[in-house]
Design a protein around this nucleic acid. Structure first.
Lengths: 207, 207, 207, 207
DNA sequence: AATGAATGAGAATTCATTCAT
DNA sequence: CATGAATGAATTCTCATTCAT
């Protein structure tokens, strides 16, 4: 990377970080571009060299942060042997998503207003440890006989429910606490999983 | 109701409707109070006599509209005998929610940005035909042995998933079409239901 | 007029005058709304209560000023008996337009960039002494046998030439001085007038 | 021309053309240098190597295009024998100016805001077929006994009227259609011409 | 000569809110 | 209660111009 390109990238990062830091104290929507560039220490025009507008910036912040999550050691460290019961894998995933969001409340507030931006970003860019656990759950469903397309659809909706419910619990606490949400989500997904296996078997039988 | 009160209420309704009609063409966030009072045909000061600010107005619009949904004939007309298989009840509910939102895209866009405002409004104010179907599904879970609190938590999360996913499908179409979302949601919830019955039984057995 | 309406009108006038005064030193296009409201001593929002934007303001300034011209005594004072030769009427009109513009260079610069706004404003709103002289010339043409529509077209084009050429002479001096333009315009229009009479006669004869 | 000079000229032309093409969709005043260099495919700094600013560019565009008009075959193709009645020469000139502008509306809009830039450019740089027809009309006036200076003044004012009125008719259509403007301009100038011959004769007699 | 990243002053416009009538 | 003129801070975004490479 040339020196010029490096400098450009540095400014991009500074803007991303400045915005995130400001979002810790105020809603990003009500933070002005002036404040962001002021904190980043760049000229106002530079903002528009990097982002179309504030909403573009928000998308890019979310993408940046969730990519980090997916490579985090945390999923690996606690990770289970692939042979562990599916319920434990679900519990691990749900629990780690919640923990991650809990320790990044600023990000959580951003995601809460942009759930689908986040879900799409995660699924389209999945990699690292997250990708592994994601595939594992998918494999289970595939083994039950669902087509690849059905598996994707189900994973998408389930992951959407996880993200949306975790954010809601952390922000509004209400009507369910984060812990309750974790256990209920695990419950629901496990029941679904169990039911799915039955459902498939009976379908097969029916045929 | 006195004549004065009637007039006041009429202005309140006019404001609500004007805002909703305007939201059909533009994002409500970017509609000014000026435009709303202009279309409603009342003075600007009158707005502040009725609402704290624009966000208060948005909440009241959502509440107003979902209350109408819950009393609609549609749920009753197609309604099944309570003895029908649970899957059919779920299918009916999911299908009718999607149909309602599809024919109220303006409302759908509002809800998409305020999912939990909507879910809370619905669950707290549930009545009419919607309440019946809601109770029916709850009864099933209760019969499986879940505590009232657990039933509420599960219904909340499931309903949140329904609303959130329907809005997403209708607005972004992507990655799943509305029809796919309906069938997948029904699938997931039915599997969950089936699994839940097994889960409970095995728990009981385990105990 | 109520007190409130009076106050509103006063602010309107203040804005019109402030803008005109500022235009004496700078091009109106490069004067900011800030400067205008600053000089007028009203709030910035008030500007937008009165004008759509700066171009709307410019049109209204031109209209305001040319209406004043049309009622000025100057045309009356020197006025000729209607029976005077047409050339003298034309000379008077051209001369007075030039004198008026010369003593209102700020207005002249505005009109130079908006010739047709001005010509339309003048012709549509003509009244006072200007209207009289305008009609007189029109009468002459009508007497020659031109239809009303033809008379209007010719007057429009001739007046357009007068305004456009006077502005050009005063601003660019070049290639013709204001005096040369006056005499040449008078010449051209008089020749046209003379020729028109011949032209019409020969047409009649031809028929 | 050296290779370097050729490349430079090519960039100059690209900028001129890019600006003109952009002006087909938007007012040139509100087109940014950024857009122009973007479309031309050159760097921003290059713009300033070629033009002082945007207004310099506009002048150069007008000059470039009207020079093309003056060499067009169209005037020659339809051209009349010099002995044809003067009215036919005027009609040809007016008609061809209108046709040219009609088929170059983008240019017409530019000229409308810069009538005198255009008129000066045309008269100072006249050549080709246009120069011929221009001289022919001038000769007629000279033969009537006007001095060279008077002829120039009259031609300037008449040509100014032609350009200004054609632009106005094409852009605002109102109050006169392009066709009406053509016939009225021909009428006015022909009447002027006829009247001028009388006028001159009577002056001579008077002397 | 050519580039294009960076600048930052500055312009237009909006809009929630107040308050005298 | 209702009105709507007035406010002016705040915000977004543009853009001509510079200058290091």
């Amino acid at each position: 990377m040339s020196k010029v390109e490096e400098k450009k990238l540095e400014k991009y990062r500074k803007l991303l970080d400045a915005a995130y830091e400001l979002a810790e104290h105020k809603e990003l929507v009500s933070i002005s571009i002036d404040e962001i560039v002021g904190r980043a220490g760049v000229a106002k025009g530079t903002f528009y060299l990097n982002f179309k507008d504030k909403y573009d910036l928000i998308s890019k912040i979310i993408l940046d942060r969730v990519c980090k999550f997916m490579n985090e050691e945390r999923l690996k460290k606690h990770s289970l042997p692939p042979s562990a019961p599916i319920k434990e894998h679900i519990e691990l995933l749900v629990g780690e998503v919640m923990k991650f969001l809990k320790s990044n409340m600023t990000l959580t507030k951003l995601i809460d207003k942009n759930v689908h931006t986040c879900v799409n970003a995660v699924i389209e860019n999945r990699n690292g440890d997250f990708a592994e656990i994601y595939e594992l759950i998918g494999d289970g469903l595939r083994n039950l006989g669902f087509t690849a397309e059905e598996v994707n659809a189900k994973l998408y909706l389930l992951f959407d429910m996880i993200v949306s419910s975790c954010c809601n619990a952390l922000i509004r606490k209400n009507p369910l606490s984060p812990d309750r949400v974790c256990s209920q989500l695990t419950d629901i997904i496990t029941c679904f999983y169990t039911g799915a296996s039955l459902y498939k078997k009976s379908t097969e039988v029916a045929i």
